[in-house]
């Protein structure tokens, strides 16, 4: 075992303890620093006009683009989580029809690439030219399935299929005894789910859900293909006009990093919230 400096014992009798010398680590650190210098230098002298990057960093179109990316992500996750909770509960049901329906949904939407789903939703008008609710209304499908709606449906429904597995593992992580305790004090199924099971399941659910949200922020960039005005679409509109391709892509990269950095910090807070009951305890005795 490698010892840190502060772990080196002070002294005993006439001996002095001396820390180990980690040649391998020094070599690795040196190599990393060298590569870092080379990388920074390459980008500094490369053909990127950094002032242009700065110029477009707060461009109104770029800002509108990142806001649209975030907006779409929030709604997609809302749709996804709603579908996922329903699906997870259906998978846990004793009714075989509910169970198989949920399983089929998960299978279908996890098997088809997300880009393909996006294109299918956007082009649904080719199969169904009009959407009709009998006696109420009938509209051309293209008017309903705008780029935004198509992206929301494609990402939301696919996300639901993935997140269902996360919610399910969360529910399974809470022991049967908790449900029994909840119903034995007179709670209904929904009360026990909301007050007892879900708050505990969240400890298992939040970390992967945070990762999926971060993943979804990035997936929304695919919606630029169907002309949804998210940040990459905005950047492309600008560089098609002025030719500053790399500079505008760097602007996008900057904003993605900022948003995802903030999300990661937020995720840390949420995780701490759901772990609060185990703080300050040496032993977890009651996890049955």
């Amino acid at each position: 075992m490698a010892a840190n400096l502060q772990d080196v014992p002070q002294a005993g009798d006439d001996y002095i303890f001396v820390g180990k010398i980690h040649y391998g680590r020094y070599l690795a650190v040196g190599t990393i620093l060298l590569l870092l210098v080379l990388l920074v230098r390459a980008f500094a002298v490369g053909k990127i006009a950094w002032p242009v990057v700065g110029e477009y960093l707060f461009d109104p179109d770029i800002m509108a683009g990142i806001v649209n990316s975030i907006f779409l992500t929030i709604l997609v996750m809302a749709v996804g989580i709603t579908l996922a909770v329903g699906t997870a509960l259906m998978v846990a049901s004793t009714n075989p029809v509910l169970r198989y329906t949920a399983r089929t949904y998960m299978f279908v939407f996890r098997s088809i690439p997300i880009l393909l789903q996006l294109l299918i939703w956007y082009n649904l008008a080719l199969i169904f030219p009009r959407m009709t609710i009998p006696f109420v209304l009938s509209v051309p499908t293209t008017e309903v399935l705008t780029p935004f709606v198509a992206a929301l449906l494609a990402f939301g429904i696919a996300q639901g299929a993935y997140t269902a597995e996360v919610i399910r593992s969360g529910l399974l992580s809470v022991g049967q005894g908790q449900t029994e305790a909840a119903v034995s004090i007179g709670m209904t199924y929904w009360q026990s789910l909301r007050r007892v099971i879900m708050p505990q399941a969240m400890r298992v659910i939040v970390p992967p859900l945070g990762n999926e949200t971060i993943g979804m922020i990035k997936y929304t960039s695919l919606a630029s293909i169907i002309q949804y005005r998210e940040i990459i679409y905005s950047a492309q509109s600008i560089y098609f006009a002025n030719g500053r391709v790399i500079e505008l892509l760097m602007v996008c990269a900057f904003w993605y990093a900022i948003v995802i950095g903030l999300l990661s910090i937020g995720q840390g807070y949420v995780e701490r919230h759901y772990n609060r009951s185990s703080r300050g305890s040496a032993a977890q005795r009651n996890d049955q």
Binding site: G177, E180, S278
Partner: peptide, 12 residues
Amino acid sequence: GMVFQQFNLFPH
């Protein structure tokens, strides 16, 4: 009322 072998308190 019911009291369980494993207590089953709500840990959160």
